[in-house]
Amino acid sequence: MNWITNYVRPRINSMLGRREVPDNLWIKCPETGEMVFHKDLEENKWVIPASGYHMKMPAKARLTDLFDGGVFESLPQPKVAQDPLKFRDSKKYIDRLKDSRLKTEQEDTILAGLGQVRGVKLVAVVHEFNFIGGSLGMAAGEAIVKACERAVAEKCPLVIFPASGGARMQEGILSLMQLPRTTVAVDMLKEAGLPYIVVLTNPTTGGVTASYAMLGDIHIAEPGAEIGFAGKRVIEQTLREKLPEGFQTAEYLLEHGMVDMVVNRHDLPDTLATLLKILMKTPAANDDSAEVLALAPVAASA
């Protein structure tokens, strides 16, 4: 027994009132290495102030920030079978679900809400990347389908914010079945004549990109977002070629016609409201008519 470590040091710490400091108080910018206090980052919508780097934004915070006054109706999470394949790798799938629910305080990766954005009623669907990488499983697929059905019932647009590594391997073919199911749900919106806008966030990859994430009437991307199907390293190994600088970034896809707009997170609510007023043929107020006219060619070309 080391009496200095086990007795003396704890006594000194207790007398001085020393407390353990959480390791997440300061966030490091992946681009510049700048350290940002977590409260400042949250107040700036998880965007690094100096570099403008867009960090991953929690799903609940994104919905609160998007809707007017942070007020919205949370859509219920559909009930589906838990761990239908009894899957286990290094850990039981059911245990992974429990851990993710404890960490995110969500039932699964999808959160959906109904509310107004600058006076425009819409349904918003958001991926939570911290829930098993935002992967698409049965619960997520069913939540997206139900959100589309609610948008049709309310006769309002739907905006989705994907952030995912793709299909959830622990659910196998049942996960892959969500790709056609969500595609059919998007077709329901289009048959009803309702706008469907996709805001691509970092990262949007795999089966999500191969389905509903690239079926929007308009595709908006956040700056620097990684968007693609297979990873850059996999593509390079397959083609045996070096890919261009910035490949699969939002800016690269904008330059090559895969994305309509790259919009800073701070400007998203205003941009979405303006585009939706155009698509829904809502008369514009005098104070934002110039902005509507400026964005009209973008919406028309989409």
Rank of each mutant, 00 (worst) to 15 (best):
residue 268 L to C: 05
residue 268 L to K: 13
residue 33 G to A: 09
residue 78 P to N: 02
residue 182 T to Q: 14
residue 108 D to T: 13
residue 192 A to V: 05
residue 1 M to S: 14
residue 90 S to V: 08
residue 213 A to H: 08
residue 151 A to F: 11
residue 135 S to R: 15
residue 195 P to G: 08
residue 211 S to F: 04
residue 245 E to P: 04
residue 6 N to S: 14
residue 53 Y to G: 03
residue 271 T to S: 06
residue 171 E to W: 09
residue 172 G to F: 05
residue 198 V to Y: 00
residue 194 L to D: 01
residue 60 K to E: 11
residue 181 R to D: 14
residue 144 I to R: 08
residue 222 E to T: 09
residue 178 Q to P: 05
residue 243 L to I: 14
residue 56 K to T: 07
residue 260 D to Y: 08
residue 296 A to Q: 10
residue 110 I to Q: 07
residue 294 A to S: 11
residue 257 G to S: 14
residue 285 A to Q: 15
residue 216 G to W: 04
residue 252 Y to R: 10
residue 141 G to M: 00
residue 39 K to E: 12
residue 98 K to P: 03
residue 87 F to H: 11
residue 189 L to N: 06
residue 203 P to E: 08
residue 220 I to V: 12
residue 294 A to Q: 09
residue 221 A to I: 14
residue 161 F to D: 13
residue 88 R to G: 00
residue 239 L to H: 13
residue 167 A to F: 02
residue 66 L to A: 12
residue 55 M to I: 00
residue 217 D to V: 07
residue 64 T to P: 00
residue 203 P to T: 14
residue 227 I to C: 02
residue 16 L to I: 09
residue 126 V to F: 12
residue 163 A to F: 02
residue 112 A to Y: 05
residue 111 L to W: 10
residue 184 V to L: 14
residue 227 I to H: 03
residue 273 A to P: 01
residue 42 E to V: 09
residue 101 R to E: 01
residue 91 K to W: 06
residue 38 H to Y: 08
residue 102 L to E: 15
residue 128 E to R: 04
residue 48 I to L: 11
residue 110 I to N: 05
residue 240 R to T: 04
residue 152 V to R: 11
residue 140 A to S: 15
residue 74 S to W: 00
residue 258 M to P: 00
residue 45 K to I: 12
residue 217 D to K: 01
residue 302 A to K: 00
residue 38 H to I: 13
residue 295 L to W: 11
residue 73 E to G: 02
residue 286 N to A: 15
residue 199 V to L: 07
residue 149 E to I: 04
residue 58 P to Y: 04
residue 142 E to I: 00
residue 67 F to D: 03
residue 93 Y to N: 08
residue 150 R to P: 01
residue 160 I to V: 15
residue 269 P to Q: 09
residue 81 A to W: 02
residue 147 A to P: 02
residue 222 E to N: 01
residue 251 E to T: 15
residue 164 S to Q: 08
residue 219 H to E: 02
residue 183 T to R: 05
residue 208 V to I: 14
residue 51 S to R: 02
residue 146 K to D: 14
residue 22 P to Y: 06
residue 169 M to R: 06
residue 188 M to C: 08
residue 172 G to R: 06
residue 233 R to N: 09
residue 67 F to I: 07
residue 102 L to R: 07
residue 113 G to M: 09
residue 300 A to Q: 15
residue 41 L to E: 09
residue 19 R to N: 13
residue 283 P to C: 07
residue 286 N to S: 15
residue 16 L to Q: 10
residue 229 F to Q: 14
residue 5 T to Y: 03
residue 167 A to G: 04
residue 85 L to E: 04
residue 2 N to T: 01
residue 69 G to L: 08
residue 226 E to R: 15
residue 52 G to Y: 10
residue 144 I to S: 00
residue 278 I to C: 01
residue 64 T to S: 13
residue 25 L to E: 14
residue 190 K to C: 04
residue 151 A to W: 10
residue 101 R to M: 10
residue 83 D to R: 06
residue 112 A to F: 04
residue 170 Q to P: 01
residue 159 V to E: 04
residue 283 P to V: 12
residue 252 Y to W: 15
residue 207 G to I: 07
residue 56 K to R: 15
residue 235 I to C: 12
residue 3 W to K: 12
residue 68 D to Q: 10
residue 109 T to I: 05
residue 238 T to E: 08
residue 259 V to F: 00
residue 144 I to Y: 12
residue 233 R to Y: 12
residue 67 F to M: 03
residue 123 V to M: 05
residue 29 C to L: 09
residue 201 T to D: 10
residue 39 K to F: 05
residue 55 M to V: 04
residue 246 G to D: 13
residue 14 S to G: 02
residue 78 P to D: 05
residue 160 I to M: 09
residue 58 P to H: 12
residue 240 R to G: 01
